[in-house]
Amino acid sequence: MSNSVSARPMTVSQLDLDPLSSAWLRLSVRPAPATGAPSGPDTRPFSLRHVAPVARPVVPGYRFCKLQQVAVTDDDRGVPLLLVSGKDWKTKTKSDGDEGEEEDFGWEEK
């Protein structure tokens, strides 16, 4: 590894070390979502010109039941959330992994 590469701040999962590998995109530590404002028309990707604000999915209160290995209601009853909220309660919450908050919501894919 060259000095110029190793001297870079280790912030965005080192994606630049293997720029064409989709595996790195999927498996690397993902950057936390940016909180800054859009740049300007000359530098903002055209594909982001018409982004639309959306509400964040709401995940019901839950705890993970180690015995049943499913999410259950966060109360004394501990009923599987699936039985209370149906099959299609919003699935993914933000990741709680080391990658920090992640923008990987199930409904966005297509």
């Binding site: 940016a34 909180t35 982001l48 982004v51 639309a52 919501f105």
Partner: peptide
Amino acid sequence: SVTEQGVLKVA
């Protein structure tokens, strides 16, 4: 999707 200024946005 991206988050800018705390707002989730979808393209």
